[in-house]
Amino acid sequence: HTIGGLAGRLRRADRVVLGDPFSRYVQLLLTITKARDLVVVDDGTATMEFVAQLARGERLVRWHRKGGRPGPRDLVFAPVSSAARKRLTPSERRTVEIFSSMPMEETPDGVTVTANTFAWTRDRFGPPRITKGADMVGTSLVETGVVDGDRYLEAVRSLAKAHGATRYFAHRRESAEKLHRLAVETGLEVVRPDLPLELIARRGPIGRTILSFPSTVVHTLPLALTGTEVRVAVCDIDPAWLTENASPRAQGFLSGVTGTARDVHRLSAVSAV
């Protein structure tokens, strides 16, 4: 019903601004629009993979599913995904722009890349009040089947103890069951942010150290917190934490997320038994 209600507007629009290009919902919308200007606005790490796949002419597949065999739903949806990729490829009739804070090693021919520097966020909010302790940022790597749940919990516990963390900012996809167990076994205060973490950190109060695993925030938080004394520290993912079902590309992709981050302190993977 929603797509049908938007069809008329999409056909008439000269410019369409969209978020996650891997979303099947977004890909369906792309097959309807005839806009001459397409703008992808996304600060997620998936943007790095999207740009690389577009540059190589590959089908659009999220990194944590890369390497697996397409399922029945993937095969049924393949024509839509292929059509969406073609729409996201610049041509004489269409321009494509990507607005993102993510680093991009491969840029597709004809695509305009505009860097999101978080200047508006810095001008609008803060600087924040900084506390003496540390805060931790959660990840959905367990929910996506990449990292083992027990290994992840032990890693969080070890990091919190080593750095004196008191709060855990949950990722929107983290399950309530996992977060409850994490709070009970680590003593961390679990916070479900109602705003993007970059805004919360900029408004404060925020810990002097922000601990994270490889994720979007290791790229965005240093930009949002430029000019403050807050240090962003990222902990590498130990290969032993990966599940049997993890994509063959998982370790390399996660290492790349950390390795390309600017102004972060890199921590070795903590022991998780």
Rank of each mutant, 00 (worst) to 15 (best):
142 V>D: 02
97 E>H: 01
47 T>M: 14
109 D>N: 11
21 P>V: 08
97 E>V: 08
93 R>Q: 10
12 R>V: 00
31 T>R: 01
149 G>S: 14
94 R>C: 02
23 S>F: 00
123 D>A: 15
112 T>L: 15
114 T>A: 08
96 V>K: 00
143 E>T: 10
110 G>D: 02
147 V>W: 00
40 V>H: 01
93 R>H: 11
63 W>K: 03
147 V>A: 05
128 P>N: 04
122 R>N: 03
92 E>G: 15
145 G>F: 03
90 P>M: 08
80 V>H: 03
73 R>W: 13
118 F>P: 11
129 R>D: 14
92 E>W: 09
150 D>L: 10
78 A>Q: 12
86 K>V: 06
78 A>C: 04
149 G>P: 10
152 Y>N: 15
55 A>L: 05
44 G>I: 02
29 L>D: 06
141 L>A: 10
28 L>C: 11
44 G>L: 09
47 T>A: 12
30 L>M: 08
141 L>V: 07
105 E>H: 10
136 M>A: 10
120 W>Q: 08
15 R>I: 05
81 S>E: 10
22 F>Y: 08
101 S>C: 13
79 P>Q: 02
120 W>D: 07
27 Q>S: 08
34 K>D: 14
68 G>K: 15
13 A>L: 07
75 L>T: 00
44 G>C: 05
110 G>V: 03
89 T>G: 12
78 A>F: 02
35 A>S: 14
92 E>Q: 12
86 K>F: 04
117 T>P: 06
19 G>P: 00
87 R>K: 15
16 V>A: 03
131 T>P: 07
40 V>R: 00
84 A>S: 04
48 M>L: 12
90 P>C: 12
91 S>Y: 09
117 T>I: 01
19 G>H: 05
45 T>N: 11
21 P>K: 06
20 D>M: 01
13 A>N: 03
13 A>P: 02
63 W>Q: 01
24 R>A: 12
99 F>M: 03
63 W>Y: 06
32 I>Y: 07
99 F>T: 08
81 S>L: 04
75 L>S: 04
149 G>C: 09
88 L>M: 14
88 L>N: 02
35 A>I: 04
98 I>Q: 02
40 V>F: 07
26 V>E: 11
53 Q>G: 00
120 W>R: 15
45 T>Q: 09
44 G>D: 09
35 A>C: 05
106 E>H: 08
107 T>S: 12
140 S>L: 08
51 V>H: 08
24 R>S: 11
73 R>L: 15
116 N>L: 03
58 E>Q: 09
27 Q>G: 11
88 L>K: 05
79 P>H: 05
86 K>G: 12
85 R>C: 11
66 K>G: 13
93 R>P: 00
27 Q>Y: 06
38 L>R: 00
138 G>M: 09
110 G>W: 01
133 G>M: 03
99 F>V: 14
